[in-house]
Structure formats: structure tokens, C-alpha cells
Design a protein around this nucleic acid. Structure first.
Lengths: 382, 382
DNA sequence: ATCAGTTTTGGGAAAGTTCCCGATAGTTTT
DNA sequence: AAAACTATCGGGAACTTTCCCAAAACTGAT
């Protein structure tokens, strides 16, 4: 007596042809087609992952049918589909992404290249991007360039040889040559630049309104009565440095203060250089009474140094940063800063990339998100 | 007249047989074998990556020979090897990792699962691990479980279906059931647990001496004259919580102070709960005069709260954290903490995993690195 | 039962690589 | 010159999946 493997009833099962040398049955009660499964896991090699061929052999059907059943293809008998799906579940079948990728020439993996992820910005960005990407079935590979051009080139090469389907990139402060990205573009692999973009490359870009953020920051300082405002700026290779500096300059000019080039220092965004130049500024014969720093880590360095020198913040020195890093609320006084929607940037960048990947059309749009001034203790004097 | 494609001389080139229908030449000057390469990139599809078959056709040899030449296999003519290597370079051949992986059943990818990476610890660990892994030719896929058990299970599933070769895992504070990891072990995929380990699983573990670190921290507070020392502890599901708490208890007992269970609070390591319980402790009728927090973010929350209540640190409240997060030097007063060699943990975990992967023997050793007490302002009263 | 028409299935090639085994060519020995 | 040997190379299977095309099975209608 044959028992239906689905409803477990015995009385309704009848033979329904022979398939691949195996007797096939149909349960008239639940309308379920099946063959008697082989006793499974007969000393199975644990390293052998179940394949569609295993499923096919087990069920006495062809691998094409199994493939179609799993893929939900249309012209497949409903009973067969169920049979395959059930066995797949039972044997914990997982499709082999390698075989699929080899055939489709895709890896479903996105490469992300960032200068670092010790501070708040890039991890927060990655979290945002990853949430969108993994929902769309993409995996993520993260590389740090360590603010080093050569490492960035190596990262691109490594991710290319891993055959990632697309890139999310924020360049190093050293990157002046973009040949490594041009290689990527030649192979028509979609790339989205964010935060630190690449102006000469025709790719989608996701940035914030750096100019306006910087302008707000400096105007705020001026309104608080600061007159000699310095700017610790990023390297001119980065578009965002240029934009923030322009915002700084325009705010100063708008309010008829004088621009003193001695108070504007470009540096490479490392913490030690931040410390050195902050020290330089505060030791000037005619030191600034406020500093607008290109980012929060730099502003924090300024504050720590000023406090160690006994300079009172905000009375003797106003400080404003950029990006609203959580440490800005831990330092005392709390740091006034420009907040940017980092998580949103990540999500937006990811969805632009996905669209480029799936619709094969890349619109080289520049997306600019809004910044906001957050006033805290480091810049407010009564 | 044929020109040698290597030394570019004309006079020394002679015919050297016909291979695959193509004339082959030998330059008597530089001893270089070659065929005249086809004119390359005749309207090549940019999506078509160069394969060994392309190289073989171009050179008029078989793909087996190309494969062996590239792999540095022994029984291959030196001239042929050079020829293949040169063309591969010229055409920017990159081996297809998908095809290789499909054949070898390996992806050369390691999955890392961490509860979060907003704070310092996990990014720093990942940086250390990645440096070793990428040097050994492995890629890395990072997943955040967000301190959520279900997400952790989903992460394991996702990484398994991506066919990662190995795992580096630090579990969530909720993880009490380890079935998802047992699935991994059943398939004999190597796993190394770090920091937040899994005591009931037979895998290599990399931890620090949590007990001794906590003991040092609390003994230091006692030596500074604090008498009513509270402990904001982690959930008892985590081994490290238990170890640190035991260190706390033993230090108190050693110095003949009384243990007050009112002063010991387990929580889930979220920041909001940290704030709530810190507030609870500081509002007790008989409040503690010091708090040893399970980690630095918690200690920071304590300090911020205490400062907002006007409680003087370290005079009225001593605070010690654990892990030497960089913020601990930014807050004022600076936070006394226990430092652990995070980068080393990452490197060690990675190299244990690589060894397991390459030597196929997994030694389930427990590696315990040393901690160090770093005394700063938050716990020192004159 | 036969036919056409539809539904469902199987066979086999393709993707890029590695590796075993057998086949050449070339060299040395008798 | 024949035999034995080595150095070098080619052929083809295997890994897993998808998809096209052809083949089989089924459905009704005659």
C-alpha cells in the first residue's frame, strides 16, 4: 500500500505512469503527483551541496523541469511544481550563485570603496546603502582606501577581478588621476559617486549642499559676533572642499569682513595634520576668534587643542564642524555643526545604482540633498 | 620580414612549425616563441571579459595550455608561458572567479557578522581582520545583526546561500539559541567566534581576559577610595557579561566591600536602556559613588547623565568603562577604561580562520588576549 | 481510434575554469 | 634506424545553472 507523501492517506493513491524508470503516483484525494523518494542522506558528504540534479534524480524528472519549477516558470504542471518545491525544502536546497552568475555574467555583488570607516560618516552611509541593497538581493563588498591613492587603485582592481556588478565610491583626498575609474566605465559597469565625487566623470553623483551648509555655518558665526574666522579646509582635489570653502568665502564677503589667506589652510584630512594646523592657527600673533572646520573630527581636534591651551570655547573661540557626528554632542561644550542626511544618502545612492543595473540606463544626474545648521554650545556667546 | 614581438628585431626570426593552423616563429636573438597576434579588439563587446579561450584562439594553442601557463604549472615550455603571460597582460585578462569557484566549490569570500558597526569596536576589529584576509586573497562580506536574533539568523542564511567559505562571528546580546550556527557546522564550514562567543559550540574563540580586565577596573576604583560601586552589566546570555561581572564581584569581595544587588543591573546594551538604568542608579536613595560600565558607550551615557544632574566626576562619582573607545578621550573628564587589542583580535581571528580553511584542521582553541587598565580623569580623586 | 492542438517535459548547449589522460613531437640510446 | 624516453600539448569531462528547441503526453473533437 502506498501512502501519499503529502496528505498521508493510503486509499486514494493510484499509479500514474512511469517516469525515468521510477513509478509515479497520483493521490486522488489531494491531487498530488509524486514518486517514492529515495532514502535520503545515505552517508552524504556534508560538503556536497544539494543541486537541482540531485532533486531531479530523486524525483525521477529532468533538471530542466526542476529548474523551471523552482523559478516559478509558467509552463509547468502544478503538481510537479509542488513536488519539487517540497523536496527542495526538505533537502534544504540552495541555488548555487556561482553557477547562476557564471551563466548570467553577474555576481549580485556591489563593491563599496570608502576612504575609511573609523568615523561616523562612512559606516552610517554604508548602513543606509546596505539596507536597500540587501533588500534587492545584492551582497556588498566593502573596501577601505585608507585615504591612499594606490590603495584605491588596488581596491578597484580587486573588486573588478571579483566581478562586482556595480560600484559605490567616495574617493580619497589624494585622488587626482581617475584612470582606474575610467577602466570601470569602459567595461560599462555602473558606478555611483557619493560625498567625495569625481567631477570629470560622467556618472550619477549623490552629494549634499556643501556650499550652502558652509555658508550657513560661517554666517552663523558672524551673527554671533565672531570677526576673524579661520577655515580648516580639505584638499582642493575634492569638490566638496572647494564648495565648502566657497561657502565660507562668500559668507565672509557678504558680511563685509576681510578675507585673510593666513586663516585658510588646506590639509589632507588626517587627524595629525588637523592638530598641527589648528595649533598653527591658534599660535598666530593675531589668532582667529572662530574656526570653521571641514568636518567634525577636525573640529573636535581644534576643541581639544584649544581647551588644552586654556582657550575658552565659545567665549574666546567659536567652533563649527560639518556632518553632525555623534561625538559632537559628547564634547564639552557641544559642537555646533551642519547635519547631513547620511542614511538617506546611502539609500539614495544604492537605489540609483540598482536602477542603473536593472534598467541598463544610467542617467548621470547629480542629486543634492539638504543640510541643516545645528547650533550648540561651541559657537554661541551671550 | 617578421619582427619579433618581444625584442622587435627583424633579422633573427625564423619559422618554428605550424600550430593550430597558424605559423609559429622563434626569435633566435631573444629565444622567444610567438605567433602573429590577431588584430585585437575588432569591435569588441565591452561586456565580454577576456577568457582563456580568447587567449588560446589568439595564440593558436589550446585552453588547457593557457590555463597551465597562467597557473605556473610545471610541464609547460618556457617560451609558451611567456607568450601567454604577455598576451594576458596586454588584453587585461582577469580569471573569472565564478568559474573557478564553481569548479573548486569555493568563493574565496569570508562572511563577518557583527551586532553593529556604529561604535568603535567592530569597525576596528573588521579593519584588522580584513587586512589579513585580503592579503590571503579573501574577500569579505559584512552583515550587521543589529542586536536582533532574527536578523542574525537571516544573516547566516544569506551568507550561506552566498556560499561563503568561512565565518567570523560576534553574536547579538539576544542570542540564546544556536541552531543557525549548528547548521553551519554541520556543513563543516569553519567559523571563528570573537568577543561575544558561543560557549556551547566547539569552534575556535578569540576573546580578551574580560574577567581580569573587570577585576582591574573595580580594584582601581576601590583603591581610589570608592566604596559603593555599581555595575551596569550586559545580559547574562553573553559570556563576556558573566566574566566581567564575576571580575567585578571578586574585586569587591577581595577588598571586603559588601555586594549590593541593587547596584548590579543587567541590560541589553542599547543606549536608551543604558540611560534609563544609569538614571535609576543615580536616583537611588543611597546612590553609588562609582559605576563600572560594561563598555565605553555605556560609561559615556553615565557621564553625560551625571553631568546633566550636576554630579561631579570624579569627586562624587567615579566612572570606568571597557574597551578604550576613542570617545573616551574626548569626554571631559577623560574616561578611565580597560583597553583591549582590537586590531590584534581581528588579525588573529582571521588567521585562525585561514588556517582552518587551508589546512582543513580546526583546532577549537580559545585564544585569550590581554587587557590593560588605562587610568584617566573619570576615576582619580586626589 | 485518429487527428490536431495544447500542455508539459527532456536533451543538450552554454558560461569559464581546472585537471586527468592520452597524444604528439623531439631527443637520446641501442 | 628503431626503440625508448621525456617534454610539451590537446581533448574532454566536470562543476551548476538556464534556456532554447524538440519530444512526449495529454485533451477533446471527429
Amino acid at each position: 500500500m502506498i501512502k501519499c507523501i503529502k496528505c498521508h492517506q493510503v486509499d486514494y493513491v493510484q499509479k500514474a505512469g512511469i517516469i525515468r524508470g521510477k513509478q509515479r503516483y497520483l493521490c486522488k484525494s489531494c491531487q498530488y503527483h509524486f514518486t517514492i523518494p529515495e532514502p535520503i542522506s545515505k552517508s552524504r558528504n556534508p560538503h556536497h551541496q544539494v543541486t537541482i540534479i540531485d532533486l531531479a534524480n530523486e524525483l525521477g524528472i529532468s533538471k530542466s523541469t526542476v529548474s523551471r519549477a523552482l523559478r516559478g516558470h509558467s509552463d509547468i504542471h502544478e503538481g510537479t511544481r509542488q513536488m519539487v518545491l517540497d523536496l527542495a525544502k526538505q533537502l534544504e536546497y540552495e541555488p548555487n550563485p556561482l553557477a547562476h552568475g557564471l551563466l548570467k555574467n553577474r555576481t549580485n555583488t556591489i563593491g563599496i570603496i570608502v576612504p575609511e570607516f573609523r568615523h561616523y560618516f562612512f559606516p552610517a552611509f554604508i548602513i543606509g546603502a546596505q539596507s536597500v541593497l540587501s533588500k534587492a538581493g545584492y551582497n556588498v563588498m566593502i573596501c577601505q582606501s585608507d585615504e591612499c591613492y594606490e590603495t584605491e587603485v588596488a581596491n578597484v582592481k580587486a573588486l573588478m577581478s571579483s566581478r562586482v556588478d556595480g560600484f559605490l565610491v567616495s574617493v580619497t583626498s589624494q585622488t587626482n588621476n581617475f584612470d582606474h575609474f575610467k577602466t570601470v566605465m569602459r567595461k560599462e559597469i555602473p558606478m555611483v559617486f557619493f560625498n567625495r565625487i569625481c567631477p570629470e566623470l560622467e556618472t550619477p553623483q549623490v552629494v549634499v549642499d556643501d556650499y550652502h551648509g558652509a555658508f550657513m555655518a560661517v554666517e552663523h558665526l558672524i551673527e554671533q559676533g565672531y570677526k576673524r574666522i579661520a577655515h580648516l579646509a580639505g584638499p582642493s582635489s575634492l569638490q566638496l572642499s572647494k564648495n565648502r570653502k566657497q561657502g565660507y568665502l562668500d559668507a565672509i564677503q557678504k558680511h563685509n569682513l576681510t578675507i585673510d589667506n593666513e586663516l585658510i589652510i588646506d590639509f589632507d584630512l588626517t587627524e595629525e595634520k588637523a592638530r598641527i594646523y589648528a595649533n598653527h592657527l591658534l599660535s598666530l600673533p593675531n589668532p582667529p576668534d572662530a574656526i570653521f572646520a571641514i568636518n567634525d573630527p577636525t573640529a573636535i581636534e581644534v576643541m581639544i587643542l584649544a581647551k588644552s591651551k586654556g582657550i575658552k570655547i565659545p567665549e574666546e573661540l567659536g567652533v563649527v564642524g560639518f556632518s553632525n557626528d555623534p561625538v559632537s554632542t559628547i564634547i564639552e561644550p557641544q559642537l555646533t555643526t551642519i547635519s547631513q542626511p547620511i542614511g538617506e544618502m546611502g539609500k539614495l545612492s544604492a537605489s540609483i545604482l540598482i536602477k542603473a543595473l536593472e534598467e541598463k540606463i544610467i542617467r548621470n544626474e547629480r542629486h543634492q540633498l539638504l543640510t541643516e545648521l545645528i547650533v550648540r554650545g561651541s559657537s554661541v556667546r551671550e
